[in-house]
Design a protein around this nucleic acid. Structure first.
Lengths: 223, 223
DNA sequence: ATTAATTTTTAGATTAGTCTAAAAATTTAA
DNA sequence: TTAAATTTTTAGACTAATCTAAAAATTAAT
């Protein structure tokens, strides 16, 4: 029986997963140090440890990637994080911008039985309150094809299915302008200079969005 | 703003509270070492630290007691532990012998908002699945007067309101012989030699209980 | 293609929590 | 009330995770 990961190890694995998902390249020491609010020297040491444990592949000066087992661990943590977020929002009436920090703690609770029962209690949700997919007990993720609002052009439309970022400031702003998951959205006009957009929201009228914001919103094709 | 307690510090404070409740005396270094599965030397060091932080009173060679602020911390941890146990049993369908270990982890989650919302979600319960009282948000405990079954004599009766011990082996055994909280119980006969008892349980007939077991069961006077 | 800038790693320290072994204080008992 | 047993504390060392400062490797730029 392999020893369970420490809280710190789990945070490294999760950070590697999250940085690694966007570009399909190795994760650099500096990027990890940034993401984990620590120093490159510290990351360098931990990388050796995780590599020794075969959770990551590592070549000096070349950054890291998750191994099979590392990926499995990452998905377990993500699964727990997102299930707890569903619980917090759906049953304890937290707002979507208030749950990230608490879920960061809850994601480290170790009990497979607890996770699976929580999953059932919640009705086996497939997305969390921010629209991110929840891996199932086998680590399978159901990823609906979606694209960023910022990548769409005039007259394209779809359904808002997710937000890339859990920054409370962004989420609170989206709340204020009535952007919620599940809403129909249509691109009216794109400003060629700054990529800002005029969009129409369901029957809530039109609004302007900067590229900073449209690049955080995920849209699924409206079939 | 005082810094939050570490997980280890919380465990020491909780252990001092739990050992300290039964006799109204100072808690010894060895007792703490036993309870925390560590060595007296380790306890000695930690005691100095907690004393410096004014969470406990400490005189060399004389053991420790909780200070006002230490007690407050202890009650916060106990509150969380018991609320989570209610959640696990009432909503995730765990049995009462399965929840202690998981609650030991959940009790360290730091978010006053979470605790209070959980409390509301659960309907502000006053006892946990083992019959132990749950401190409210101000640390107040509603302690109904109860006595140990082992302290009762022939023909006395009452309602089973708690179990002193969370040992899964005990709890599973009680389950098996149909002992649950809320049940009417009546002492039929006490064996003078080993203090074992014959008792009558609601309409479930009579059974024999050893002193090992009767000394773990709390009974409230049936008015 | 050298040099400059950046990134990454190593070296050496630090802190929290733990341990073993031994010394000191307290309690128990003859 | 002195000796024996027990409890508690000190001393010194170890591990995990962190840091700063400096060296080494890589990448970018003139």
């Amino acid at each position: 029986m392999e020893k369970a990961l420490s809280l710190t190890e789990e945070n490294y694995i999760k950070a590697i997963f999250q940085i690694g998902t966007t570009p399909e390249s190795n994760v650099s020491t500096n990027a990890l140090a940034d993401s984990l609010q620590t120093k490159p020297a510290t990351v360098s040491d931990m990388i050796k440890k995780l590599s020794y444990k075969k959770l990551i592949f590592y070549e000096k000066y070349k950054g890291v990637t998750l191994s099979e087992s590392g990926l499995k661990e990452a998905l377990k943590i993500i699964r727990k994080h997102r299930l707890w977020e569903v619980f917090l929002v759906n049953h304890l009436n937290f707002k979507w911008d208030q749950v990230h920090e608490i879920a960061e703690q809850l994601e480290h609770i170790k009990s497979p039985e607890l996770v699976n029962r929580l999953d059932d209690f919640l009705g086996n949700p497939t997305i969390d309150p921010h629209g991110d997919p929840i891996p199932d007990a086998n680590g399978q993720v159901q990823l609906g094809s979606s694209k960023l609002l910022s990548e769409m052009t005039s007259h394209e439309n779809g359904i808002i299915v997710g937000v890339k970022n859990e920054d409370p400031l962004l989420l609170q702003h989206l709340d204020k302008i009535n952007i919620r998951l599940g809403l129909y959205i249509e691109v009216k006009e794109v400003n060629g200079f700054d990529q800002s957009m005029q969009v129409k929201l369901a029957d809530l009228g039109t609004l302007f969005l900067s590229e900073k914001i449209t690049s955080q919103i995920l849209i699924a094709k409206n079939l």
